[in-house]
Design a protein around this nucleic acid. Structure first.
Lengths: 199, 199
DNA sequence: ATGTCTTTTGATAGTTACTGTCAAATTTTA
DNA sequence: TAAAATTTGACAGTAACTATCAAAAGACAT
């Protein structure tokens, strides 16, 4: 039998996914109520009814409970679904915007709250920016494939770097202006990059 | 008497600066010999002949002993020294390249080693990227002043974000290719940004 | 169902980065 | 030299992690 699609796959897997979600939910709530630093892993574990050791088995670090997400695969799919006549930059822009457009109102609200927390708390921001370097590498690979270049080609790396940098600036601004529309901010910023950074 | 200009300012200040430099030197050596994580603050303190509590009085975190630098003021000076007919992007490019050109061979070698360590060790990379957001804000302010816009103008923010992103991509590449010339890498990357991110 | 095998869990005992406090030592100032 | 201000080190504590290991729970063959 294939190891991946066994009809929601055994009780074990289901329980793990459920536990993970429960822990993340309680963590987010506690962070909101007490603040990130004032919340201990012990408190999160207690609220989620697991032991602290189990917490660290699910999440290697306290930060991870908030930062873990799966946007990268979504981005890949959206990027590869873009029409081939678009330039790489237009394709990235379309992919990011459509990925956001596909989110539910609930997901958007959670994302906003997460972004606010992450950009506000130095440890979280640092870890988050760090993980963006992986996304940068990913974008370089996507762009390389689309243009027939190598991922470590200078133009490709610069392209990926600029896009990640623009994302960072948008995330920071959005954290301070939560009433703005993230998709619009990102779309406008990437279009400015496309237009040649006219200043 | 004014508390700030007292002619090289007392024995105390000089001793502090000296202690700081000694600690940083020993820390860098120990990190090189033992690895970052395997080196404890206690070991650094012992090598520098201070107490651990004193270490934390000088550096709020262990990361800080490696990350603290003063490139921002250098960048500001270099930027404002750029001829006024240059575009903001050309000015930033000129400023960064000339700031590197002004460094001694020793400084360059130290910078290379630091960059390698920082980009290699996840904690250090995270903290370093985090501090780059300050530089991003700084660039936004410089660009805003030069163009008569506000620092939180969308075009200005996007400009600063793209530049920081390009810097990140160059730093990552440089860490894996230490024999390259950092100034050249950065110059080429920023010129690609200037040319409109042609892919 | 039963027993066996494998995976997951929780308890326990560390290590280490970092914080707070206070008295002793050192530098500055009068 | 005496007094005031600052720096230092010792001590005690917190909390994020790590390693280990026995017990509990799920998977599986018979």
């Amino acid at each position: 039998m294939s190891p991946d699609d066994k009809r929601t796959m055994g009780l074990r897997e289901r329980k793990k996914a459920k536990t993970m979600a429960v822990v993340q939910m309680h963590a987010l709530r506690l962070f909101r109520e007490l603040g990130y630093n004032a919340t201990t892993v012990e408190q999160i574990a207690e609220a989620a009814e697991i032991s602290p050791s189990t917490f660290f088995r699910y999440f290697p670090t306290k930060e991870d409970v908030l930062l873990r997400d799966n946007y990268d695969p979504v981005l890949v799919d959206a990027f590869e679904a873009q029409p081939s006549h678009l330039s790489p930059l237009q394709a990235v822009r379309g992919a990011m915007v459509s990925a956001i457009a596909d989110m539910s109102a609930d997901e958007l609200a959670t994302m906003r709250e997460r972004n606010e927390l992450i950009m506000t708390v130095p440890e979280l921001r640092a870890a988050s920016l760090n993980s963006l370097t992986q996304t940068m590498q990913l974008i370089a690979e996507l762009a390389a494939k689309r243009t027939g270049r190598e991922p470590d080609d200078a133009a490709v790396r610069t392209f990926a770097g600029a896009i990640i940098g623009v994302n960072i600036s948008v995330m920071l601004y959005y954290a301070e202006h939560p009433d703005a529309d993230f998709a619009v901010l990102l779309d406008e910023a990437l279009s400015k990059l496309e237009a040649g950074l006219l200043l």
